[in-house]
């Protein structure tokens, strides 16, 4: 199993990364950035499908809320109606998960490649020798230069800048796709999970080599760009200081506000697209 993983996934990514580094003037940090962009481009059709699927789910949100109100006391019926709604709209509710699952092995391979390629200890260098292709580009690149923009890519970033960037970019990306909840309890839950993920990644960044954190930051930024152009605009992410406060003519219930917000965001997005 380990051999299959190495031969089919890890070794091609690892050697590709090392060869790329040699092509980019021996700059491994640049190689990580370029490879991340390439990987995201290859996965673009999947990301596009995922984003479209998420967008379609968001469009169904008002109808969903109506159903939730209508069948609040009959969970079985609610499930049936929700499934019927998904079917009518041609959406597989788990459809947006597949791209995520497919990306997972690539993340792991990239992570392992960065770790192995940098060979922080003499032992790591010996292990690396077992994975290298006999290519001149690879031979000449070893051992890699781990310095990039003041970072040692094989070591955690002591300045915490990368941890903040990882957390921030992930938070923005999540905020763009997370609709506000209908009731305060759900809203609190949702805010907590939206905060937890970036915080956890930021925490892990303190432990992981900065090369991997660099990959996460670049990957998140690309994700934000894709989300911006495909879903149209910033979605559910608000810039409080940039927006004028909207005069409220009459008080609205939390449910009504939440039901209106997705369509507003989508309309704004459509305008920008237009």
């Amino acid at each position: 199993m380990v051999d299959i993983w190495n031969v089919a996934i890890l070794d091609p990514v690892l050697n590709g990364l090392i060869a790329l580094s040699q092509m980019l003037w021996g700059n491994f940090g640049l190689a990580i950035i370029v490879l991340t962009v390439v990987v995201r481009l290859i996965l673009m059709p999947l990301t596009f499908r995922q984003t479209k699927s998420t967008k379609a789910m968001q469009e169904l949100q008002p109808k969903m809320q109506e159903l939730q109100k209508k069948y609040a006391r009959d969970q079985k019926k609610l499930q049936q109606e929700m499934m019927r709604l998904y079917k009518e709209a041609g959406i597989n509710p788990l459809g947006c998960m597949w791209p995520m699952l497919i990306q997972m092995p690539i993340w792991i391979a990239l992570y392992q490649s960065i770790m192995q390629a940098l060979a922080a200890t003499p032992e790591n260098l010996l292990i690396l020798s077992q994975h290298l292709y006999p290519w001149d580009l690879v031979d000449q690149a070893i051992p890699l230069n781990e310095n990039f923009l003041g970072l040692r890519l094989s070591q955690p970033d002591p300045t915490m800048i990368l941890a903040i960037l990882v957390g921030l970019t992930m938070w923005v990306q999540q905020k763009m796709v997370t609709p506000p909840a209908t009731d305060p309890r759900q809203q609190q839950m949702s805010s907590m999970t939206t905060m937890m993920m970036p915080l956890m990644f930021a925490f892990f960044t303190l432990s992981f080599p900065s090369g991997l954190a660099l990959y996460w930051v670049v990957s998140n930024i690309i994700g934000i760009i894709i989300q911006y152009f495909v879903a149209g605009g910033w979605g559910y992410f608000n810039f409080p200081s940039f927006r004028q406060p909207r005069p409220q003519t009459q008080p609205q219930s939390a449910t009504q506000k939440a039901a209106e917000q997705p369509s507003k965001a989508l309309k704004e997005g459509d305008k920008k697209k237009g």
Binding site: A120, T121, S154, Q155, P156, P158, M160, F203, L206, S207, P209
Partner: peptide, 12 residues
């Protein structure tokens, strides 16, 4: 390192 026992050594 900044994060205790979980972390890689700060220097090789």
């Amino acid at each position: 390192s900044a994060c205790g026992a979980m972390c890689a050594p700060s220097s090789a």
